[in-house]
């Protein structure tokens, strides 16, 4: 599945943000010399196809007081990793949860779960919950706290690529 040149133009025009005007899609259409209906229809189709996950705001966790986040990583028995990953991903303090390849010998962990809370103690309490859920299927684990956000722009398409 891919996107055509017109889809790409719409995405590159809006990826830094929708214009904050009463008729934002008409404004984007004016920039691109299209009709509003075409912009809306193409965005809707890209949403149906999953190219656009959603049109929404990304709140700044830190600004809103969710200041502690830790990337918890777990070495989980491959035989049960999918099943347990789904259970971890469903916890309400987990924002992202993935199975990824290990990078042995440096990195034995295959399950990544991002834990959030108002402070580090809250994150550690969440970590204890995850550890209990994984039980004996987890051999070893670690948590990597963030020290600094170095960049956060989201995915950017190159123009006309």
């Amino acid at each position: 599945m891919s996107i055509d040149a017109t889809d790409r133009k719409i995405l590159t025009a809006t990826q830094a943000g929708l214009p904050l005007v009463a008729e934002p899609y008409a404004e984007v259409a004016r920039w691109l010399d299209m009709t509003e209906a075409e912009v809306i229809e193409r965005l809707a189709k890209m949403k149906d196809r999953g190219v656009i996950r959603r049109i929404a705001v990304a709140p700044n966790h830190y600004a809103l007081g969710v200041v502690a986040n830790g990337m918890s990583v777990w070495d989980v028995d491959d035989a049960v990793a999918e099943e347990l990953g789904a259970q971890v991903g469903a916890l309400d303090f987990v924002s992202h949860c993935y199975l990824r390849p290990r990078a042995l010998p440096d990195w034995p962990y295959n399950l990544f779960a991002m834990l959030h809370g108002p402070d580090r103690d809250a994150v550690e309490a969440h970590r204890t919950e995850v550890r209990a859920l994984l039980g004996a299927s987890c051999r070893t684990s670690d948590i990597l706290y963030s020290a600094r956000i170095l960049k956060k722009t989201g995915m950017r398409l190159a123009e006309g690529a």
Partner: peptide, 28 residues
């Protein structure tokens, strides 16, 4: 919304893309 963006309460407002659905990929 404009004010929330200015004070940094929201970082982005617009479409969130899925690289995989357009034939691309994300990689940590």
């Amino acid at each position: 919304i404009s004010h929330l963006r200015d004070i940094g309460a929201v970082t982005r407002f617009g479409p969130f893309l899925d690289a995989a659905a357009m034939g691309g990929a994300f990689c940590l």
